[in-house]
Amino acid sequence: MEPLVIAGRSFRSRLMVGTGKYESLEAMREALDASGAEIVTVAVRRVNLDARETSILSYIDLERYILLPNTAGCHTAEEAVRTARLARAAGLSNWVKLEVIADDGTLLPDPIATVEAAETLVKEGFVVLPYTTDDHVVARRLLEVGCAAVMPYGSAIGTGRGLEAVERIARIVDEIRGRVPVVVDAGIGAPSDAALAMETGADAVLVNTAIARAGDPVAMARAMRLAVEAGYLARRAGRIPKSSVPSPSSPEAGVVGRS
């Protein structure tokens, strides 16, 4: 695979992974390793004052992975900007996975607030990777305000429903690809979804729940890694067009017993 380049940094892997929802931090570390990912997302939360909690960073080798803090849970541009600033102040990364979620239980992005927050954060020097809808016009706006990638959903966060509107992802790819990477984020349920995203022309895929909640997260992480690679190669290889007319793969002449 050719390297994935985001904001001037090169990555061998085109699979990004989240660190949420694992049974244990040990399981997370093993799955991260098996995924081959180099970019891992984390959330920013208040320190729990009532209990000492193990640091997730004890399980993430920062020599190997770049942290992509998210603004998950933020409902307004202001909340997201505040969270991103806190994440940067922690001193490990000026990258941010921008998420502004409409406060209605759908976990779908608020595209207007996302563009607004992205614009502010880009001006402040952040490398902004926004989680967005599969609307190509919103993707274009995010590109215009200087985002380092565009990350449309395949389907809603945590649903595992795959790419519900693959042609909409294809439209975003047409619009954005070659300028900044398109990363399909959210909704990936199985390796076939990840492969389809890559076949459709996405530059990378971000997966969390489908790995963390799999029966065997380590095996699923490996499967996702291979699927992303397969989809990438298939895209470059050029798939055949779909046809309504069947066409035999074997010679029609020379079948035994025919006169």
Binding site: V42, A43, R45, I56, L67, P69, L86, A90, L206, N208
Partner: peptide
């Protein structure tokens, strides 16, 4: 106001301060 990490040593907490202290946790 976000406080730079280098300034933690010098910043003395005052009565009535409103402080948010955050860390990284697992997330997607």
């Amino acid at each position: 106001q976000i406080v730079d990490r280098q300034a933690f040593e010098a910043e003395v907490i005052q009565e009535g301060d409103v402080i948010e202290m955050v860390r990284f946790v697992g997330g997607g």
